[in-house]
Design a protein around this nucleic acid. Structure first.
Lengths: 141, 141, 141, 141
DNA sequence: GTGGTCTAGACCACG
DNA sequence: GTGGTCTAGACCACT
């Protein structure tokens, strides 16, 4: 299966796993940003943790270093990462955007979008509950 | 706050409501496409229903007519809309892309993405059930 | 004097003037950022104003479009600019980082650094006052 | 707040105080250079004074010895420091770069940059005078 | 026409 | 070895 074309892949690097899908419309650098954000919010990575180097990630994910730099850079501007040239990129001390319950707020945001979409599809709360219920170990790919 | 710039807005036109957010990353024309698709899948609009004219929509939504034309055009290519020059744009007879259970498949797709994201945020099934539970008519904006 | 090498230059574009010095150590994109920030803080540019297009600025300043894009991009991440692909880049509504007296705070920041430096050079307040005094229309270059 | 990451700190070593901020854009080794230069220009250190050893400074400032070596090295190249193997690093006899009025020229340079920046922020001479006036012993951190 | 994404590569600065 | 800056150019998406 040595595909030369875009396929979703999953990579495990340090404490963070990157699952990139180059063909799903969401820019690669944005997928990277999200996965780092979520790794922090969920507690898989913490203040002071070092991220993979740009170059190693680039090799691992088989993408251009600049793409990763762009992701790291945005997170640095937002105060989530700190880079020290020569020694690497680290998760900052700053609590991401609003302290304690950043994770809860993110969850609510994702949940909100989900419910809106479901409503738009005409799914009511009852039906929704059943759907969630039905999600047993059907969690693959 | 007489904003000259991008803000999310909600418009009610015929049977379809458009809630556009020019600054959320998703292209406007794609937001329009989705809302029409969902209106059909959920049964709010049916074969033969007439859509707003491009011009009226453009005025209403305060966006470029080309943007709407692009959305209508893509939907026409996919066989979901048909335009009859001189009389307007209508929802076609064709069952949208995959017959009977198009809606179900869409629902599963949205659900899948949602659960993946929640998992990434470290929310397990139990917690998820509670969250959904908690969603009483707290449906805002 | 058709120098092929780095020289400071001053350009006047719309309401904003860019004086770039490619050889002063400060990255070009960062000089651009600062000049936009200051143009806003000083009131020369206001919410809703359109910035020069990336390409026109690139031609004008004779630098690579990506460099300008990088500057605009950072300002967008910080919420100072908003871009609408297809129509341009605009100054956002958001009051820069702390509302009303953003300018005052910036002034204090610059002033603070200045006084620290002067102190390090052994200049006391009295001497400082005299120096400022002496700055009549000796404002050249 | 047991930060593992960059924070500005102030250290007092012999007659020279180092206030380093690893996250302010200016490279650490350059901050060291400047502080030594200013200590000399202001007369806090004089010809023949001995500087802290690289190792002790490295421990004190909690930074990489190479960084300090780089700073000392550049100052040595410029003739401001001399190292005598086995006994340490000293301030040279040479008047720093331009004899008598090196300090004055440095002051003018700093002053010039300051006034340019203030002008860019729309601060005129009158306002400036007031600002300086207002700087009583409000010298913090 | 607008800006965005991604690649490629050169060169620099830092530790 | 680290990341940063800048260039160049291809291709895409949006208005």
């Amino acid at each position: 299966m040595n595909s030369t074309i875009a396929e979703p892949k999953l990579y495990n690097i340090d404490r963070i796993s990157f699952s990139l899908d180059p063909a799903n419309g969401v820019p690669i650098y944005r997928q990277i940003i999200q996965q780092i954000e979520y790794a922090i919010l969920s507690g898989r990575m913490r203040s002071g943790d070092r991220l993979p180097t740009i170059r190693s990630l680039a090799v691992e994910l088989k993408i251009n270093p600049n793409t990763i730099a762009k992701a790291y850079n945005e997170l640095e501007i937002r105060g989530i990462l700190v880079t020290q040239v020569g020694s690497g990129t680290f998760i900052s001390d700053k609590k991401p955007d609003g302290g304690e319950d950043a994770r809860d707020r993110k969850i609510q945001e994702v949940l909100g979008r989900f419910i809106d979409e479901m409503q738009n599809l005409g799914v009511d709360k009852r039906e929704l509950a059943k759907l969630i219920e039905a999600c047993d170990e059907r969690r693959t790919r």
